[in-house]
């Protein structure tokens, strides 16, 4: 000890510095997220709970909420046996299956093709993402006119180039379904494309080169190295599209109004129709709750199957 005293403790210490009165502690992080939390609660949770609350009443438009009779779970039991609800659920699932499958495949394929810095790639990229910038209402209007049986370009060019008879696109159940699927693919493939290409370009080049040295051909590189490495990005893109399928309704509302019949009526459009066409706000709220449950279940399922927060690892 004598030695240590000599070499390291030669100086007399001054008065200790006073400890600051305020120190970042337990409360600080919560104080910072509080405003955001408030917005979340107001903007997100309030409507959700409101929908749940309303779903317990038989509330018609024009009636004061106070006068609406409390019906308990009647709206829900009615919903479970309502063939219309099952019909639009089936339409929504078919719509989701076709659009998401094709958008993911096409978006990933385009991203892989345009990933390399070839001449003009940036022009292509800009053109591809244009549909994303168009508001859904405008998209609906554009494609309604394009698919129009009498004055639409689609019928015109199908006839002029391929000699195909004019079709009543939006008046036939199957063709109308095809039309809204096609429109959705047109608008949302760029979304997948843009996310995937960002992921691909962020991949460390040495890992891809290592796989070249290891003898992987283009396909093996894509399916065994590149796509697995951007798995978390793919999962997030898939999730966002799935949620959108259950949320989106503007395009169908404008193009077909859900018809003919209920052939293009997605779940959210059906809720809209129930609420504002048939004016059954309570019942529409009950179906909204169903929608929330479905979206929540799907999200949880996907996130547990492939946790994008966890699978991202540094190389």
């Amino acid at each position: 000890m004598a030695h240590a005293d000599m070499d390291t403790q030669r100086l007399d210490l001054p008065e200790p510095m006073p400890q600051p009165r305020f120190q970042a502690g337990f409360i600080t992080p919560y104080a910072f997220i509080f405003p955001a939390l408030l917005v979340m609660l107001g903007g997100l949770l309030y409507p959700v709970f409101m929908a749940m609350y309303l779903s317990l009443y038989d509330w018609q438009i024009g009636l004061d909420l106070e006068d609406a009779p409390f019906v308990g779970l009647t709206n829900f039991s009615r919903m479970l046996t309502d063939p219309q609800v099952w019909e639009v659920l089936w339409v929504t699932m078919r719509f989701g299956f076709w659009t998401i499958t094709i958008e993911m495949t096409l978006g990933v394929a385009l991203a892989l093709l345009l990933e390399k810095p070839i001449r003009g790639a940036s022009v292509f990229r800009t053109i591809f993402i244009l549909p994303l910038m168009v508001s859904p209402v405008v998209v609906g209007l554009i494609w309604r006119y394009l698919f129009d049986a009498r004055v639409g370009w689609i019928n015109y060019y199908l006839g002029a180039w391929f000699g195909i008879e004019p079709q009543i696109w939006l008046g036939d159940a199957q063709l109308a379904f095809f039309a809204i699927v096609f429109t959705d693919i047109w608008q949302w493939t760029p979304f997948i494309f843009i996310i995937v290409i960002a992921g691909l370009q962020a991949l460390p080049s040495e890992v891809v080169e290592a796989s070249t040295i290891d003898g992987a051909n283009w396909w093996q590189q894509v399916f065994l190295v590149k796509l697995p490495m951007i798995k978390s990005i793919l999962v997030i893109a898939l999730l966002m599209r799935l949620i959108d399928v259950f949320r989106g309704m503007e395009v169908m509302l404008i193009m077909t109004g859900g018809g003919p019949g209920r052939s293009t009526e997605l779940l959210s459009l059906h809720i809209y129709n129930r609420a504002f066409e048939t004016q059954q706000l309570g019942y529409a709220s009950a179906i909204s709750v169903l929608l929330i449950v479905i979206v929540f279940a799907i999200s949880t399922l996907i996130l547990t199957m492939a946790n994008p927060m966890k699978s991202r690892s540094d190389v």
């Binding site: 460390p204 890992v207 080169e209 040295i213 290891d214 992987a216 065994l224 490495m229 699978s311």
Partner: peptide, 26 residues
């Protein structure tokens, strides 16, 4: 040839055995 990179360039989604055997499996 075989090559070792500065950043190691390991495949992050494969475990050690899979990383080492990738070329042989291909």
């Amino acid at each position: 040839i075989a090559m070792v990179f500065q950043s190691y360039a390991l495949y992050p989604h494969m475990n050690v055995a899979q990383n080492m055997s990738f070329a042989l499996r291909l």
